[in-house]
Design a protein around this nucleic acid. Structure first.
Length: 778
DNA sequence: AGCACGCCGACT
DNA sequence: GTCGGCGTGCTC
């Protein structure tokens, strides 16, 4: 009989600890996946039973776990298997993975009470701990028989209310009202947080300040929204389920692939109607009694896709899941799915891969090349890898879809490790747009950031009553400002990068660490306060077009700043798709999957922006983004046109973008990668490490880490490059370095990483992180 | 992350 | 002599 269990802690330090079992509960209760309260130090913490312990610890020295949180395990064995596999791959504790996977409400045990049947007996968690052994046992038996229940603290408490800013800056607040400004700034950065969190982060004074701001209607405090807006007013562009001949062939191809493979690639040009094909396939899998998971890279797309799925699959249970839902909402979806046996559809972003779907049949990863499918802050994981694991585990089928697949994915298809179906035609009357380069060396920008001919073209399009999108991947007003006193550029003191000027907010913002300074700003070098903006961001372009285009033309902006306020994104998209605005200026947010039939012109303000970054994927990324932007033009019945401004018209990327020639680009880029020994021809990992800027032993430690890595790497048959300062050499007051590992085996890389961590474990100033297959080298 | 333990400076 | 500052290290 197993009496020792390994429990993964759901809070820091996330380690797995071993406990004995308490008395009074039926033995059959103890199953993997059961959430429990365990004593850690003198506190109680939530954790998850992983497995009967194999360790040779002395049972007399172990504590008994305290109490189960539920009568049946929330998580299945398959689910735990997935978590543990993931933990192994990213070299982290299972508890850390679980904590990232579970919605907040399920990983934090709120102070709870035990109520007994119909009696009035109530016991707080603390009271329960103080009971005598016999009393505790009696309660355990009562609870086990269903005579007592956990009553979680009600969330109607004021601190659980969500707060969000209701107006875009600039805000009408006296400049002396520092606290009001601090609250507004905080909420603006975070989007929406609950009142408790706000008071915790800023201090208790935030409570009354919040009330003042509510009175001024600058901030709203509301109960977490319980339901998602059901339908989306943005046109989805998907009229019906009738398939073209090409789509039918693709569907047939996928059906066939599913009989002998675990996954397939749908390579379809923008506007070729991939979603309809997915919908058909989804319907078939549902009919077969299996669940369907539909993943898209962004929340806005998830909402659109939800509307389309509901339209196509009426009567099916469809769940939505993404990171911007309220914790309550996510908790509800999570628990409902964990207990659900009938098949259903889930539409969501990357985090939806962690949902406890019982029987995952079909998984669709749309826009599979998108970088948001790999997260790299808290937990480094690749959604594709996890999706693969899930379908393998459940004998399901994974569909990767894109107009511009990840080079790695396409190369797998080329080598016939991954079946591929292709969609080359746009559906309906629309055609792929014509794409032209505008050489800014010959035709320098005269109209704001635009060449004369581009501006001219824009005006013509608007005169005809058509719409245009302007893509520029830089938010804010100006990416740099320099001081007229000393000629220096204003820099972030912690990151050393230039500060971006945001005109509406009257702030200088560091786009890397998020800190901001008020503007006007006093130069730290010469005390002057006159600054001149250099370069242009979306805010400037919006302002420029609003004033230079004929009156009556409405210009809107779509970027992270303009969509911070809740519901703004939908408003902007809806206004554009109803034709109320004619020009939409934005960052790459514009390029993802939106369907605007009225758009006949797309302008890329600076095609070279991403091309010269120190990253082996710079060209791939630029190509993908430009093809996606181009894909927004000419989706209606009028032909589309794309203008790309560049100062480097000879770059090999352009001819392929112009012809919409993915395969050509692939050949060229793949050959380059092979020659330079980059993925997909080798495996790559970064060992990132950072240390405080002000640390005397910094330089010596960097050398030591490098020496150690080179030695350990060599022994493991890896090539080790570096250490080199990371492209963002200083961030948040820390120096950042990395070593690049090249080799054939992920496992060797993990081993080397563990060795270096072990070796420098005691050097507290040093933080070391592993990123297998990094998407960007920053 | 908590929360102890522990070793130095300013007070009754 | 005691209170308390936060550096260091552990939690089954």
């Amino acid at each position: 009989m197993e009496t020792l269990w390994d429990v993964a802690l759901l809070g820091a330090p996330f380690t797995t600890l071993t406990y004995t079992l308490p008395e009074g509960f039926p033995h059959s209760l103890w199953q993997p996946g059961l959430r429990v309260w365990v004593p850690v130090g003198r506190a109680l913490r939530p954790g998850v039973l992983l497995r009967p312990a194999s360790s040779s610890l002395d049972p007399d020295k172990l504590k008994p776990l305290f109490w189960p949180l539920e009568r049946a395990p929330l998580l299945s064995r398959d689910y735990l298997e997935m978590i543990e596999e993931m933990a192994k791959r990213v070299v982290q504790d299972s508890g850390a993975i679980l904590a990232a996977a579970l919605p907040a409400g399920l990983r934090s045990a709120k102070g709870a009470l035990v109520a007994a049947g119909n009696k009035r007996e109530r016991l707080s968690l603390d009271a329960l701990r103080r009971l005598s052994e016999t009393e505790r046992k009696r309660w355990a038996e009562l609870w086990s028989e269903g005579q007592a229940e956990w009553v979680l603290h009600d969330s109607e408490h004021r601190d659980s209310l969500q707060c969000f800013v209701k107006q875009d800056p600039p805000w009408q607040v006296r400049p002396q009202a520092k606290r009001q400004i601090a609250v507004l700034d905080y909420l603006w950065d975070k989007g929406s947080v609950n009142r408790g969190r706000l008071r915790h982060e800023l201090g208790n004074w935030a409570g009354p300040v919040l009330d003042t701001l509510c009175d001024k209607a600058l901030v709203e405090v509301a109960a977490p929204e319980e339901c998602e807006p059901d339908s989306c007013s943005v046109a989805s562009g998907l009229e019906d389920l009738v398939l073209s001949a090409e789509q039918s062939r693709a569907l047939e191809g996928l059906r066939h692939a599913a009989t002998q493979h675990q996954a397939a690639l749908v390579h379809g040009v923008t506007g070729s109607g991939k979603t309809v094909v997915y919908a058909h396939l989804a319907r078939e899998w549902l009919a077969g009694g299996r669940s369907v998971l539909l993943l898209v890279p962004e929340v806005a797309l998830a909402r659109q896709t939800l509307a389309a799925v509901r339209h196509f699959l009426p009567g099916e249970r469809v769940y939505l899941y993404h990171g911007y839902q309220s914790p309550k909402q996510r908790e509800k979806v999570f628990t409902e799915l964990a207990g659900r046996d009938e098949p259903c559809v889930v539409v969501g972003t990357r985090s939806a891969l962690f949902l406890p779907l019982r029987d995952t049949g079909l998984v669709v990863l749309d826009e599979e090349h998108a970088e948001s499918f790999k997260q790299d802050e808290r937990l480094v994981y690749q959604a594709k890898e996890l999706a693969f694991f899930r379908v393998r585990q459940s004998q399901g089928f994974l569909v990767l879809g894109s107009a511009t697949p990840d080079l790695k994915t396409f190369s797998a298809a080329r080598e016939e490790r991954l079946p591929k179906v292709t969609l080359q035609e746009r559906v309906g009357a629309s055609q792929l747009p014509e794409i032209d380069l505008v050489d800014l060396r010959e035709e320098p920008p005269v109209a704001g950031p635009f060449a004369a001919s581009v501006h001219q073209r824009l005006q013509e399009v608007l005169e005809r009553g058509e719409q245009a999108i302007i893509m520029h991947n830089r938010r804010g007003y100006a990416p740099l400002v320099y001081c007229t006193g000393c000629g220096e550029v204003a820099r972030c003191p912690d990151c050393e990068v230039g500060l971006t000027y945001h005109k509406r907010r009257q702030r200088l913002v560091c786009h890397y660490c998020g800190q901001h300074k008020e503007f006007p700003f006093v130069c730290p070098k010469c005390r002057a306060s006159q600054f001149v903006p250099i370069g242009e961001g979306t805010e400037l372009i919006e302002e420029y077009l609003s004033t230079s285009l004929p009156a009556g033309v409405r210009v809107d902006r779509l970027d992270r700043d303009s969509t911070r306020r809740q519901g703004r994104l939908e408003e902007i998209l809806a206004a554009f798709s109803r034709g109320e605005s004619q020009v939409l200026v934005g960052t790459q947010m514009l390029s993802k999957g939106h369907h605007f039939p009225g758009v006949t012109l797309a302008v890329v303000v600076d095609g070279d922006l991403g091309l010269n970054l120190p990253d082996y994927r710079a060209a791939e990324r630029t190509f993908q983004m430009l093809v996606q932007v181009a894909g927004r033009a000419g989706r209606g019945d009028k032909p589309g046109h794309v203008l790309i401004q560049t100062r480097d018209p000879e770059h090999y990327c352009w001819e392929f973008v112009r012809r919409g020639d993915y395969e050509g680009f692939f050949e060229r880029e793949a050959a380059l990668r092979q020659r330079l020994s980059y993925p997909p021809y080798t495996k790559l990992a970064l060992v990132r490490f950072s240390l405080p800027t002000e640390w005397e032993q910094g330089a010596e430690t960097i050398r030591e880490v490098g020496r150690f890595l080179r030695q350990a790497g060599k022994a493991a048959g890896l090539r080790v490059l570096g250490p080199a300062p990371a492209p963002l050499g200083q961030l948040r007051g820390r120096l950042r370095y990395h070593c690049l590992l090249k080799g054939e085996s992920w496992q060797e890389m993990r081993t080397v990483y563990q060795q270096v961590r072990h070796r420098f474990f005691r050097v507290r100033q040093l933080r070391i992180q592993l990123d297998l297959d990094p998407v960007h080298m920053m």
